[in-house]
Nucleic acid binder design. Structure first.
Ligand code: MN
Ligand code: MN
Ligand code: ZN
Ligand code: ZN
Lengths: 144, 144
DNA sequence: CTCCTATTGCAATTCAATTTCAATAATAAT
DNA sequence: ATTATTATTGAAATTGAATTGCAATAGGAG
């Protein structure tokens, strides 16, 4: 594992921005443990580690971390956005349980074909896709 | 067109709730013209028609209109939720232009197969899926 | 018509997200 | 090293979608 700090540093430099310890802390925290996360979770974990970083700085940096391809929007739930690491991981989609919140990742190769065909039919230049399947997980479907 | 008011009325009655003119106004407005919409758009259109309904009532009723299957969440954009009519329409997904906001609907039959297979492999009971393809529309892709 | 209480409009509130601002510090220039 | 420039920060204020409290109203059962 690794490379994400370097990717981010060169991205920042190329944009004429500045590398700061706060930025490195955020990247390090995301890639230490967080697969899916939200801003408050990230903030609380940084705080627990002794970081003095503010939420404002996290909010300000997330768009940059997305732009350089390290993370992306995952889903909107409970009135706020959830993100996920994508650097070093293959593209995947999510099954989400609407009862317990469990998230299962899956990869499906057919999806790429659909994307290609639909884009062609509608003359779109695709940047990304996001397939979210919602329902009840194995545990929750028996309790409904 | 037609049927949505009746569907909503019997849904409301079955729940032991009350049918009100405000609720009927909202349903009527949604099904008069709005395919995709957000709360403010709905509110402004109702106001323009002379309705005295409050935004609070719209916000309070949307979960009920979703629950009875007339509309559903479509996507989250510009810091607020966008909805769409589903009653009387077939299931479909969206291509969305990240430059001009254009939305194109499409139907793909393969998607159902993916859904079924993925659900089986992960022991999920699927309720819904949402495939959003983002990119540049025909006009915008030439301007990038 | 009467009663019960769901629903409403309005205003206050919540909270994720953004922005303002003065202090700080990263980087380039000297 | 020192200095100059200005991007970045934390703290606090602000925004705006969405929710909630409350008193007045009105749906609908009996
Ligand atoms: Mn994921
Ligand atoms: Mn649609
Ligand atoms: Zn579950
Ligand atoms: Zn476009």
């Amino acid at each position: 594992m690794g490379g994400e700090i370097e990717v981010f540093r060169s991205f920042i430099s190329k944009k004429g921005l500045r590398n700061t310890p706060e930025r490195e802390e955020i990247i390090a925290e995301i890639f230490s443990d967080h697969n899916h996360f939200d801003v408050d979770e990230l903030y609380q974990c940084l705080k627990a580690r002794g970081s003095k970083i503010s939420k404002a700085s996290i909010y300000r940096n997330i768009p940059l971390i997305i732009e350089c391809g390290l993370i992306r929007d995952a889903w909107f739930e409970d009135r706020h956005m959830h993100y996920e690491r994508i650097y070093g991981r293959g593209h995947h989609c999510h099954l989400r349980c609407i009862r317990c919140g469990k998230v299962v990742e899956f990869v499906d190769n057919q999806l790429k074909d659909i994307e290609t065909r639909v884009a062609l039919e509608n003359d779109f230049h695709v940047i990304d896709h996001r397939l979210d399947i919602t329902g009840y997980c194995s545990k929750c479907k028996t309790m409904e």
